[in-house]
Amino acid sequence: MSKEETVAKKQGSRYTVRVWRQAGKDKPGQLVDYQVDGIIPNMSFLEMLDVLNEQLTKEGKEAIAFDSDCREGICGMCSLVIDGVAHGPHSGCTTCAVRMRDFPSGSTITIEPFRAKAFPVIKDLVVDRSALDKIIAAGGYVSVNAGAAPDANSILVGKESADRAMDAAACIGCGACVAACPNASASLFTSAKITQLASLPQGQPERKKRVKAMVEEMDRLGFGDCSNHGECEAVCPKEIGINHIAQMRRDYLMATLAP
């Protein structure tokens, strides 16, 4: 250990981390306690787990598996339910952007994987979220082949519509809405893509077909029903609103009443 590291360890805080450990899919799992030292306030939550994992590796123990990639809050790969809240205590950000200054020194932090039937645990804190890709594959696109597009400015889109579409398009597909929903519903995720395309002229030709296909796929994959708890909106790192869910319901109703 370098001198700098020793100093950092002395300066930093200690936490007790209770982590869900599960060897693999369909294997039993449990919460296990670990102590981690030398955590400084500006460290990100995942860097704290990195420190813990380095420690475990040195001790010859198996590191904790968790997902992360960009570590700047845009890829949607990181997950985790921290003390019962998806993406942790700080609103409007992903787990990777949560900083340790949000946790009082010496506290115990419980970390569980995203839980839903449609998100089976793969290992420890890693879950399989491919169900979200399947919802998009069912119709979350404009059917246009490469090379077939007209000049971009031949399709005018009012600023308000473009802004509305962008609000919805900001979704990073992390699945926190599902994890946070008391019913494990994917309504916020599904509706965000539906309203993005419904707000744009490009999305109109397939609008009805799309909403039906995506809603039905969402149901088929075993996500729950939405009970308007709005917890999804509160944990959403991109602060996507439940107004999109209302829009999805409108569109689905219209699509089935007047197909």
Binding site: G84, V85, T110, R115, A184, G222, E233
Partner: peptide, 19 residues
């Protein structure tokens, strides 16, 4: 059915939740 295994710690997000 949608969440066969629940959370051990339950929490509410801050902000505009209706939960």
């Amino acid at each position: 059915a949608a969440r066969p295994v629940g959370y051990q710690v339950k929490g509410n997000a801050r902000g505009r939740t209706q939960k």
